[in-house]
Design a protein around this nucleic acid. Structure first.
Lengths: 347, 347
DNA sequence: ACCCTGAGCGCAACCGGTTGCGGCTCGTCA
DNA sequence: TGACGAGCCGCAACCGGTTGCGCTCAGGGT
């Protein structure tokens, strides 16, 4: 199955390659007649222009890269990334740009850009170091359309879409304090990740601002399993805290499981608050700080598409708010409902 | 920022372009000395071969396409696809092949293949019609590496990875019958989708084989919202069935929510069984038929990678089994635990 | 009858690698 | 000392589109 080329069309039509090319691209220099003939033959023969050849002459590929910073199992275990990808893929679909995807710890994206494989890039800022940023900025200077998602390690002129975590976190802490909570435990993300430290700091600050105290801290790895492990460590210490705050929902999910097998009642014995509001959170009734993940992805892709068209747009910081559900109680007085065990009803 | 090309290296080194090319590709015809010089300069100047030019001469791009059959919001609302993608991306990462991704109702994948944008393809069989299959088979004949995931509309010689739904579904029905269930309701996927009809038929057959009867049927669209809507329709009819079977987990999730707001107890009043065993199912305690989604994705990508290397591998049908959780009870005698409402504990 | 104009098309170069083949420069052996 | 072969490298064509430029030819004006 040899692919049909411009030359093939030209040969069977007895015209020059250039004529066929122009006819297909609606060049006014071509007579309506030949244009029709060419188009008809192209359709009949199933002609599709070779992407590589086209990318070679025009100096771009029309593809946008999305490089997730970790391995696939990590990335997709967290609904956050899937939701982000949903937003990204959604506007990519509308704009008609294919996305080149990779989930890998190694920074494929820079190679992709240099090889001309992609014209634009959405980079997740979470794992990025300062020197990564610097290299990306150089690339962006060279007409690459780059957008960052998530807090970068330092300020950058790259258009970035982030969230302001403060309102949601403050609201959560206020709510807990109003409900009579006093001593909270904090389960953070990876200690060596700047964004995780920043978020933990914000939890701490708001906790104290609300008149509560962080009496215990555990570190997770942002995964469900890590959250479960952190919960078990916390439980071994005994029931010191009456509210647990998490760096993200995935860890909260794991903790919820651990608490259940330990027979600890939520929210009666301990309230649980996550961060992200990924889709399963609503299913599980997890109280959590909502960030508009899908919108983040959409906006990032819109930035890239705009930059591709030559009119760069500024980044944006979305807001957050508290999404209150069943893992916190709204009033300090809890009804005694000690029903637990394997035969408990799910609804 | 002009990209550095082979010619640039050749010029500053005073040699021919071809020499540089050969030196970089370890051609034995090049002396160790010049090879060293070339490589050093390439490194110093940050040379990266242009992907388009390379793809043009070698007749392939090294990219594999993954085209999901529906729009992004639909695709990513269902954890099934994310999990599948996890498997796909995982082995793609190991093999070092980038994946070109699109979620779109329009069949981009065929254009991609014809344009030479991708060498291989993973196509989701669910939405494929017979003539789509035929066209894909033609492409595959032309050295495209294609693998199908999910039941195709008809038999095909394309390597396909599927699941055998029978064991899991039979086990579920047997379990339900043993637990004393008699009348079941069935919530199917889209009626116009062959795979959904096939799965519904299998539920029906196994239900009867287990001595139960399908007393009611509702049709959903495979989404959570569709499942909730179907559940509400079922509830309006009154409590005729004591077990609900679903075409997939997403719909079961929606139904669980609807049941909860309706005050119907699960599993006391009605048992719920899903299909897929997506990650949130374990979180929610949903009894469901497990299919190894991630393994499906991995195997499909392995098939493509193998075909790319020239040694085609056969497809595979994975098995299914019942994953019994809290939305079914293991014994017919249910303890009376009527605790419900907004203040109920989550764990 | 002659020139000018412009529409319509072909020629050829170019994008950046890849590769067959031919040629030059040594070293070796007779 | 001359022939021969191996080792190294350059020339040029090619992959499949794109595009500047120039050529041809028909038609209109004087």
């Amino acid at each position: 199955m040899k692919a049909v080329t411009l030359q093939d069309l030209a040969d069977t039509l007895g015209v020059a390659r250039s004529t066929v090319s122009r006819a297909l691209r609606d060049d006014p220099q071509i007579s309506p007649d030949t244009r029709r003939h060419v188009r008809r033959l192209a359709r009949d023969l199933g002609y599709h222009p070779n992407a590589a050849a086209r990318a070679l002459t025009r100096r771009h590929s029309g593809v946008v890269g999305v490089a997730l910073p970790r391995s696939a199992p990590f990335v997709f275990a967290n609904p956050y990334f899937a939701t982000l990808l949903e937003g990204i893929a959604s506007v990519a679909e509308d704009a008609g740009v294919p996305i080149l995807f990779s989930a890998s710890p190694s920074p494929d994206y820079e190679r992709w850009l240099r090889e001309g494989r992609v014209d634009g890039l959405i980079a997740l800022g979470y794992g990025l170091h300062a020197h990564d940023l610097a290299r990306l900025e150089v690339l962006a200077g060279g007409s690459a359309a780059i957008a960052l998602v998530g807090a970068p390690a330092r300020v950058t002129e790259l258009p970035t879409v982030t969230v302001d975590e403060a309102p949601g976190i403050a609201a959560a802490c206020d709510r807990l304090a109003d409900a009579g909570h006093r001593d909270v435990a904090l389960v953070t993300g990876p200690v060596n990740a700047a964004y995780a430290r920043a978020r933990a700091d914000m939890w701490r600050a708001s906790t104290e601002a609300a008149g509560m105290a962080v009496v215990d801290t555990a570190h997770g790895d942002d995964t469900q399993a890590g959250g479960a492990a952190a919960a078990r460590r916390l439980l071994e210490l005994g029931p010191v805290a009456d509210a647990w705050l998490f760096g993200n929902d995935a860890m909260a999910f794991g903790a919820l499981g651990a608490l259940q097998t330990a027979g600890v009642r939520v929210p009666t014995d301990v309230a649980v608050v996550g961060f992200d509001d990924v889709p399963p959170a609503a299913l599980l009734g997890l109280t959590t700080v909502h960030q508009p993940i899908r919108a983040l992805g959409e906006h990032a892709m819109r930035l890239v598409v705009a930059a591709l068209r030559g009119d760069p747009a500024p980044g944006h910081a979305f807001s957050t708010h508290l999404e209150e559900r069943r893992t916190t109680r709204s009033a300090p007085s809890a009804p005694a409902v000690p029903s637990h065990g394997a035969t408990e009803d799910v609804t």
